[in-house]
Amino acid sequence: MDIAAGAREIDHSTRVFRFAPSPNGELHLGHAYSALLNHRLARENHARFLLRLEDIDLARCSHAYEEQIVEDLHFLKVDWDETRRRQSDHFDVYAKGLDVLRETGLCYRGFMTRGEIRRFAELRVEETGDLWPRDPDGSPLYPGLDRRQPAEEQDRRARDGESFAWRIDVAAAVERTGPLEWEEWGRGPDGESGRVVAKPAEWGDFILARRDVPTSYHLAVVVDDAIQGVTDVVRGRDLFYATSAHRLLQDLLGLPAPRYHHHDLILAEDGRKLSKSARDTSIRSLREAGLQRADIVRMLGLEGVV
């Protein structure tokens, strides 16, 4: 399958929105805000609205959580227009996307674990006194020590059972694509809007797939958005910086770029981002406490909007 050929050409006169939670925990107020906002924008614009389950993490995601998500969305009166899509049903499609990227010569196997990356960064700080660069999520960038390792040596190490992740040589990829940008009709963390310059180098050589899972969040989401013809990606501001990585992959794969709207986050009382582990903000717990849809809409400040 040609990934680009399988993508639906974006027609902004026929808009498509989507809500894409991971079924690895219960929906919380932040998810409710995003689902309700997407649904309202889709209905106002006579657009299609899709539900996608981003469940590539098979160890943490479950059918029970998926069904809970569906139940909570029905409670919120959020409906969708097509059969829900599970990413775990499409690993073959993502594997083909990975093959396309590998054929560019821009990918390599990275054998360092998270712990090894962290220790490498700490040693460099001790040796030089300079801070090791970190990605927008705060993780140290991959050192890329195996970036120039011959393919034969990488193959041998993989055959010997060493754990690895497929990574992209971002510097070489950016040199190939040239400058990239996206259309932002929401607002970034620093007030960015309009045409935003993508900065994929901030992520370093990010992961495309792992040895046992032929995709990553970054790869799966751009392939899915293209195949489903998504025109408008409306999601939390915590994913604003990830858009730079997504624009890089879209360009390399020959995929269309949606418009993006990054909305405000619903935060806990202490100012932290809501977590699925904090059950007191889950939609299920609020329902069990007797709250109705109108109560949740009021808590989210969406009265008169949805």
Rank of each mutant, 00 (worst) to 15 (best):
E269L: 05
Y260T: 01
L53D: 02
G30M: 01
M299W: 12
E303Y: 03
V221E: 05
V70D: 00
D81R: 09
R159Q: 14
I69M: 09
I296L: 15
S34A: 15
P256T: 11
G110V: 02
E162D: 14
W132P: 00
A59G: 12
V125S: 04
H261I: 00
Q87R: 04
P256A: 12
A5S: 15
K77M: 06
E184M: 04
R157Y: 02
A151M: 10
A47F: 08
R287T: 08
F240P: 09
L219H: 03
E269Q: 14
E126P: 00
Y33N: 10
D264W: 11
I296Q: 11
L123T: 14
H46R: 15
S163W: 06
L300C: 08
G110W: 07
E26H: 15
G254E: 12
F17E: 00
A220K: 05
T128K: 07
P256Y: 13
A294M: 02
T104K: 14
S139E: 14
Y65M: 02
D57Q: 07
T243P: 02
R109K: 14
L300W: 08
G144V: 00
V222I: 09
W80S: 03
M112K: 11
L50P: 05
V222C: 04
R159E: 14
A245Y: 04
A121G: 01
R48T: 12
S13R: 15
A7C: 07
R8F: 00
R119E: 15
V197K: 13
V16R: 08
R187M: 13
G6T: 08
I69T: 09
